[in-house]
Amino acid sequence: MTLSRIYMEQKKNLKIVEKQLESVLWAPHPILNEASLDLLKAGGKRIRPLLTLLCAQYGDPSRKAVIDSAVMLELIHMASLVHDDVVDDSNLRRGKPTVKAQWDNRVAMYSGDFIFAKAIELISDLENHEIHRSISRVIRDLSLGEIDQIKELYNWKQNLRVYLRRIKRKTALLMALSCQIGALAAGCPSKVGIKLYYFGYYLGMSYQITDDILDFVGTNKQLGKPAGGDLRNGNITLPTFFALNKYGMRNAIRNVLESSSTDQGQWDTVIQEIRDSGAIQDSERLSDNYLRKSREILDQLPQLSTARSLKEIADYIGTRNY
């Protein structure tokens, strides 16, 4: 089964999610309304709602709470993107002007807060305290992960644990939650929810490591910006970590980071050296390890067609090149 086939199979449900997103995002102010709907129209992979819908198949996927959960997760993701664009001072996302670029930082703050509040309102009807404890913890950790990222900028001395904790909070927890909530909202027992949580967690770790690798090896066209953007912004990701600690590039990397060099040639050289060092292959190995763990979790669950679809998603994460 291919990824596009999985999307096709979930097409009807994803359409319902899309429709509900549109209706939930309506705002009684033209700017808020436009900003929110533009975000929706910009699209995206909708990987989180897809995971929720798939994991719900371990229980009763027709429950209203399943779609509500999928919508809520996408809203949280969207709200975080609007605020991330202010943090990163980004003017483009998916080739379109960001909210902060089209209006200003203030509108971006209001839109993000508005969408986030919509997400919480939507899910507050759900009378399942376990779900709320999980969601609220993940949302809190998500913001802590973002703060950690700012804290560790330009810190070339950070250890692997710090990096892994950061990507866990920044990306993996929301994927873990997407899977767990899908199961719980569909009425599955907690233990199934926990297994799927860990499946999503390992998948998310691999997803972010892959993102961090692609930032080095992607083309300008694929990335929409020069390669090595993370390092240029002081963000030490896994390939840089390996290059620093395993491939003798400590001085070269430290020099560009500490001098805050504006000489793009100097950055390009360091980025090329990281690419050639073996750090990318090491990062890929760690990513593959996480994917292996995610597949092992699925082996512990009933072997429905859902398990095959989830494995397919894991395969896609491992091979994606954009």
């Binding site: 605020h83 986030f116 969601i135 809190r140 973002e146």
Partner: peptide
């Protein structure tokens, strides 16, 4: 950057504590 993120953190905290 921290103004954005700490505001998000506080917004998350209200839900966390009420949940």
């Amino acid at each position: 950057q921290l103004t954005v993120l700490s505001g998000d953190f506080y917004s998350a905290l209200y839900y966390y504590s009420l949940a």
